[in-house]
Write a protein that binds this DNA or RNA. Structure first.
Lengths: 121, 121
DNA sequence: ATATATGCAAACGCTTTGCATAGAG
DNA sequence: CTCTATGCAAAGCGTTTGCATATAT
């Protein structure tokens, strides 16, 4: 297969199902759906989607995670179940950093940790 | 040598010289100071200092960085020269995250990117 | 026929660990 | 003597890439 790209479209579909995926998670999910693909292909598909602006990559702990490209948001990870949720809106103050450090701030990477509603109970 | 720990005290000394060190940077710095040590030993020294509460480890890009343990702060990295500076004070709003996500927020990891004063000019 | 996608396997970069040795107490 | 630290080398882990093959256009 070439243009439609078997693996890539399947991977793109995954991005709509859940917030964040690691390469291995996506790989396993495809296998479960009867779409076996090589890890490398999944990795390349995700990398391609990022290059095309359809996905975004972020690092969380020791491995890379991918999510569908959308409006800017931060992430919060549940320490118990590992669930990753988006934090809507802006919760950091770039201007304050610029004021305090003398740096011209161009971006930030933020990850919150905590416990999701289910694990809190 | 055993107790005084040659390498560890040398590494601890480095932490006072600059804000952040990678294992390789510390390794090279020791070499420059005539204190040759194996990378593994430097790594272990840093890991030990972290365990002892004297240092703190944080991930930045593909590699781990170490700094002297002190009051909580965030980091800002210069995109040009790579300099890492501390951002004093709190610039994120944990409570807002809790409110918006339903997670009980216990911590956060924040890194700002931008250009330092020197590179801005 | 040409350009892209895939699988397989290996290369890489950084971290971590096993093991034998050396040195401090 | 005993216990920790060090060096050396190798193992791990996740990411990335080279290459030959397969497939859509």
């Amino acid at each position: 297969m070439a243009r439609p790209s078997h693996v890539r479209s399947a991977v793109a579909g995954l991005l709509g199902e859940r917030h964040a995926w690691t390469v291995d998670e996506a790989h396993a999910a495809l296998r479960d759906r009867g779409v076996p693909a090589d890890r490398a292909s999944v990795h390349r598909a995700l990398t391609r989607l990022v290059a095309d602006g359809e996905a975004r990559r972020f690092e969380l702990g020791p491995r890379a995670h991918f999510e569908r490209a959308s409006s800017h948001h931060e992430h919060v990870v549940c320490e118990d179940c590992g669930e990753i949720a988006a934090v809507p809106g802006c919760v950091v103050d770039d201007a304050a950093v610029a004021r305090r450090t003398g740096f011209a701030v161009t971006g930030h990477s933020v990850t919150f940790s905590g416990r999701c509603a289910a694990c809190s109970r």
